[in-house]
Design a protein around this nucleic acid. Sequence first.
DNA 1: CATTTGTACAAATGGCTGCTTGAATAAGCT
DNA 2: AGCTTATTCAAGCAGCCATTTGTACAAATG
Lengths: 117, 117
Amino acid sequence: MTATARRATEEVAWHALSDGNRRRILALVRDEPRAVGEVAARLGLSQQIASHHLRVLHGAGLVVERRDRQRHMFVVSTDGLAAVRDFLADFWPAQLHSLKRAAESAARRPKSRRRSA
Amino acid sequence: MTATARRATEEVAWHALSDGNRRRILALVRDEPRAVGEVAARLGLSQQIASHHLRVLHGAGLVVERRDRQRHMFVVSTDGLAAVRDFLADFWPAQLHSLKRAAESAARRPKSRRRSA
DNA sequence: CATTTGTACAAATGGCTGCTTGAATAAGCT
DNA sequence: AGCTTATTCAAGCAGCCATTTGTACAAATG
């Protein structure tokens, strides 16, 4: 990933996260995949709005989509969140960084942690 | 701080951070206090824009202001950033959380510092 | 085949906001 | 007192964006 691409990723991620409804959606699809209609029903949004926001979140790499029959299921993807987290990380003491990075590499090390097709 | 107040704080913080110029300003005043004019000059912004964005950042608790004669000096304040960081923290494995919290308490209580390099 | 369910596409709108321009306030400097 | 520096305030414009409304498409169900 080039530097400019990383900057663009960060830009769209921040923009996507700036909306409160989108953050609520993100928290809702954090633990398990949910369909557009379910998200809309649970948060009291119109189906169009839920669809729209999920598309924005998807474009920012904050959720991944999986089609299940006619349903479109969405779950959180930490890929897009990483850029935002990295920005924030620079504002806390360096001591914190080393431990956090150590935790990340520890979490990445299990090789069987692969996305199921 | 009440729950609604915390939510409002989080809201304004996300909004303030959604703008790229404001994030650049934040990174600039991270290490040392800077005056409005200096921020404007370094980032190629008009003085009015720099002042405006710094006021937004200040309203979100992301910077603190200190008057030095006729200069208005601004530095980063991690208070407003904490809400955003906490939101993000919920999206990573629990394993990471415990390590991060351990790092935080270690940062507060530097007598038993451990490095995991 | 017709109906229901799940979702996306398109146009219109209202509000917010980043930026510009112009002016005002306030504190040093000569 | 004038002049320069540092900053804010106020008004206006232009663009973006969240939301609504209406429609269309696709898949399951009867």
